[in-house]
């Protein structure tokens, strides 16, 4: 039995590494982002990618869908996009006898990997169309509820610079993302590689190394990794430190944060920690695992206060302070 677990861990690591390597063939210089995206996929979560245009966010998602051999759809969010454009709608059909009936036409949400490109350009009403799908993995149209095929994985992108004509995501929407990843400019060395790969006649080809059932199996493996109570408490303490005016609050939290992270953030830290533990050939979660995923899991769940907004405080700065201040469990 022990050997089976060892094999399971080894298989997980091998598959994960292969996916990562395949994506990295196309996406250069974003190893951490790729790892976190795969992590979210295996954690049954969704990812919000934030970065200026042209950094390869969309390419990353499409490459990933190629590698994991899943049904991929892309929704370009615009201000006039309607919820029905995402979820689908009932349209009037006529049968051979000339009888008319309503038939549900599935929207792009009915895929395994959905790219919600520039999600903040759509109105909150449209953005909210994703809420049910992301959490319950179902879509309700009228009185009918349609179940989405697992694995269901939403990758949303947003541009942090263009604020005109955009609608910031509501807190409830943000909370449904497993992680928010920041895509920065690539380094000089990475840019050379990118240019070399994209300006030549032959573009790199990726192989499909993972399919839906394998992903579901890997998700099961992730959930099996045990976590000791002290480490779990460490994750909880980090989460609670983001809550202003409690006995666990950090000084900066009290000053700049209006609302702290929800319990979903603790879930995200622990599940993310489990995946990281497996990647490091461990069968338990360590404090370091929690710390390494904390930023991505918490940064979009912290709602800044007026003072924080006014002083343009970066939630990452607050989180860094929190992580430094909370001692490791003993």
């Amino acid at each position: 039995m022990t050997a089976a677990i060892e094999q399971q861990v080894e298989g997980f690591q091998r598959l994960f590494t292969r996916v990562k390597q395949e994506v990295a063939k196309v996406i250069v210089g974003y190893d951490d982002v790729i790892e976190c995206v795969i992590m979210a996929l295996l954690a049954n979560g969704h990812v919000l990618l934030e970065g200026v245009p042209g950094l390869g966010k969309t390419r990353l998602v499409s490459t990933l869908s190629d590698v994991v051999h899943l049904k991929f759809s892309r929704i370009q969010f615009t201000p006039d996009l309607m919820p029905a454009d995402i979820t689908g709608t009932n349209i009037v059909q006529e049968n051979a006898h000339g009888e008319k009936f309503l038939q549900f036409q599935q929207g792009p949400i009915f895929a395994n990997v959905v790219l919600a490109d520039e999600i903040n350009r759509a109105t909150p009403k449209t953005q909210s169309a994703l809420l049910e799908a992301m959490e319950e993995k179902t879509v309700s149209i009228g009185k009918q509820t349609y179940k989405l095929d697992p694995p269901f994985f939403v990758l949303a992108t947003q541009n942090p610079l263009e604020m005109e004509g955009t609608y910031p995501l509501p807190e409830a929407q943000l909370d449904r993302f497993f992680m928010k990843l920041k895509v920065d400019y690539p380094t000089l060395a990475s840019l050379h590689t990118i240019l070399n790969r994209t300006t030549q006649s032959q573009e790199p080809e990726v192989q499909r190394v993972l399919d839906g059932p394998q992903i579901l199996e890997m998700r099961k493996t992730v959930r099996s990794v045990p976590i000791a109570r002290p480490v779990q408490e460490y994750a909880i303490r980090i989460m609670m430190a983001t809550h202003p005016n409690t006995k666990f609050s950090h000084a900066q939290t009290n000053k700049y944060v209006r609302h702290g992270a929800s319990p979903r953030s603790a879930q995200a830290m622990i599940v993310g920690g489990k995946i990281r533990a497996l990647l490091h050939n461990r069968v338990y979660v360590s404090s370091e695992d929690i710390r390494s995923v904390a930023m991505g899991a918490l940064r979009h769940r912290i709602i800044l206060s007026f003072e924080g907004e006014a002083e343009r405080v970066d939630p990452d700065m607050i989180l860094k302070g929190i992580l430094e201040s909370i001692p490791e469990p003993s």
Partner: peptide, 26 residues
């Protein structure tokens, strides 16, 4: 990386899990 600490906690708070056994053996 918290290996002994976690193992000790699982020894003190035993649970039936193969994963825990693997962790303790390691």
């Amino acid at each position: 990386e918290d290996q002994l600490k976690t193992a000790y906690w699982f020894i003190e708070n035993p649970r039936k899990s193969e994963w825990v056994d693997v962790q303790i053996r390691r």
